[in-house]
Design a protein around this nucleic acid. Structure first.
Lengths: 388, 388
DNA sequence: CGGAGTCGCGCTAACGTTTGCACCGAACGT
DNA sequence: ACGTTCGGTGCAAACGTTAGCGCGACTCCG
């Protein structure tokens, strides 16, 4: 047992190894004195109708030997024979975006439990790169894909679906393709209700990219809630933006340039909110007192800012996990439906005006519940049946 | 016919396709009226001594047909036959850490130019996970690996090397294994010289995890430079920490608890620095005036903080790119040597005491011209030319 | 005691590529 | 005119698995 490590205790001079010296099924079979097909059946736990397994004793012997020599099936051979690769491709706008990185971590974690591995690629939200990377990943014969960079119009995705590639979307929705998203409309509502409740009436929205359902839905939810409260958000105060700091900065500048200073801003993304806060600060406005700011996602940074950022928390990690499970079900041939996870509002100083301290004031003040940056356990957001 | 999507213009009813309907080499060969071996030779551009290629006309015909039907070789078949997968495995502590994510982006980008794909996995710096994930990736028959989570002692890596797996390290070094790192010792020196030059003498270090060469070398360089200047950094003011905000926070608390307040702190990681700044702020110390703080890496956030963080910039993206190239050379059988890329100091308000404005003073607002002496452009970390 | 059913396992043919070798015609040198 | 060389292809054997089929031996029961 001591030496039962990798590449077998045998010392590397096993019979019938592959070119690299790794044991093959043949190695195991020969050692066990059985035919390779028998070894295969045993190691694959084949069962079911019409299939007969080996005897208990032989099975155990084979398994023991396989274990001892450190046998692991050659995925190329298996893939060639079965034409299934246990591989999934994941496309994201950018992995350096912590939102997507967190989602991806969830995906990777969950797929691994099924024995699947993942290829990730960045597309930078560029349609050309999307096509190109998709082809690349498909050429690897993945069993399915997860897109985190869907365009709302979904033309490209229709095409992929037409080619019979099973996939699910995550974070963003598009058309009728199965997706796992945050309930962004609700998230936008939460933001609006929070601001309205605080008495704000002159609202602005930093709306994100026009092709991403996240920004669209969050904005829509926000405006709907405002409209219901009889508050209008003029077009001039709803501006599109990139999802990063720079995007938020530019959008905020544009809003201020309107000459019509709002008393609160909703940014559909935390980083955009941070950019906006910088601009406001430079403009001499005290965030949290002179003007309220709400972000979206609750990235760890949000609670660590000098002025804690009020934001709508989305269960990023869990979205990844759920998307993975959804894809697995699709691969099994099941008919699946989209899932929308519920967000929650995390109030902090950027709207409450209370200085809770840069450290996030763990457990102190109204802004607590903010949770420690770093480890944001995704609360098991209850799943809402989608009417789609 | 109308749905003549992407599966080749042929219309999808090609002869001799694979189970999924994709064209195989046989499809192409049959259409071109040649043997599959001929098609293979043509499509693989075989050349060299003793190998004869097909005639120009046949070659062109084959290539044209392959293109038309959208042929892409089955990687399982190729991998099985050649026992090379054009796959590399990448292990990182955590992908949500933007430092590692940036490095990974570089790796992915560069490997892709070689026709390689990558598997990434998180290990959370946990030795058990490292082993487990490594085995998982190796079971996929990758051609090589890149470790971004090396422990300084490198026992595990020796083992892997002993098994004949080609790999390189990135970000952290260990033993004599080939690595691509930042010159961390130099980086530590830069930080020290900067602080010493500003007159600081009571220095503290937030040193990161004790098993990571990054923290070790940065700390060593820092202390060496101090020693040369005749300044001692007492052990009590050098404390280990996690590489995240929370780690920096805890470490700073510990340092302050010493009762012996430093006049400057060097954190070996920007996020740790941010955590430290929060604690200092809560303690009533004005960062940049009462106390200087220097971080490491220059993550985008550093320049966007309300008090810009002075930091040592490390070429993260390029480290990834170089690591990828290094591995490729190793795979070709070349003898390779470690590379150390040079860092540079980026002075900001956290040591200079100048309020440059939250937005990073991008030409807007009152804080504008207040650029720091020798101010380096904050944002677009110059992307290193990546050889295609 | 003999036939039917079952159990345990071996045989064999794929899966899609690559590659050493053999073969054939044409050009070439003497 | 006749070997020789070489350019252009075809042949076939792998690579490591899986899965349908079939065959002996054993069990069971009438």
């Amino acid at each position: 047992m001591a030496g039962s490590v990798h590449r077998g205790a045998g010392g590397g001079d096993l019979p019938f190894t592959d070119p690299a010296g790794r044991p093959t099924l043949r190695t195991v079979a020969e050692l066990a004195g059985v035919h390779v097909s028998t070894a295969s059946r045993v190691l694959n736990q084949v069962s079911g109708p019409g299939v007969r397994s080996a005897s208990r004793t032989t099975s155990e012997r084979i398994r023991r030997i396989a274990q001892r020599v450190g046998y692991s099936p050659n995925p190329h051979a298996t893939g060639l024979r079965t034409s299934r690769s246990n591989l999934v491709g994941v496309l994201v706008p950018r992995l350096v975006d912590i939102v997507l990185a967190t989602i991806y971590e969830g995906i990777e974690e969950a797929t691994a439990t099924y024995g699947f591995s993942t290829f990730v690629a960045n597309t930078g939200d560029d349609p050309v790169a999307q096509r190109q990377r998709t082809e690349m990943v498909l050429a690897r014969r993945v069993d399915g894909m997860i897109f985190g960079d869907a365009y709302i119009d979904g033309g490209f995705l229709d095409e992929i679906a037409g080619r019979g590639v099973p996939f699910v979307l995550v974070s963003r929705r598009a058309g009728a393709h199965p997706s796992v998203t945050c309930d962004d409309v609700l998230g936008g509502r939460l933001a609006a209700e929070h601001l309205l409740g605080l008495g704000h009436r002159r609202l602005a929205v930093i709306a994100g990219e026009p092709y991403a359902s996240t920004g669209i839905d969050r904005t829509a939810g926000f405006r709907a809630a405002c409209a219901e409260a009889g508050v209008e958000v003029p077009e001039a105060r709803v501006v599109h933006s990139g999802f990063d700091t720079e995007g938020g900065r530019a959008a905020m500048v544009e809003i201020l340039a309107g000459g019509d200073v709002p008393d609160a801003v909703f940014a559909v993304n935390d980083f955009a909110a941070v950019g906006a806060m910088g601009v406001l600060r430079d403009a001499g406005l005290a965030v949290g007192r002179d003007i309220g700011v709400v972000g979206f996602n609750d990235v760890p940074l949000a609670g660590s800012l000098p002025v804690g950022l009020t934001t709508v928390r989305s269960p990023m990690h869990e979205m990844g996990v759920r998307a993975a499970h959804l894809l697995m079900r699709r691969l099994r041939g099941e008919q699946v439906e989209s899932e929308r996870l519920v967000p929650s509002l995390v109030p902090r100083a950027s709207t409450l005006g209370v200085e809770v301290g840069w450290s996030g004031a763990r457990g102190v003040g109204p802004g607590s519940g903010a949770g420690a940056p770093g480890s944001t356990p995704d609360r098991p957001a209850p799943r809402t049946p989608t009417p789609r």
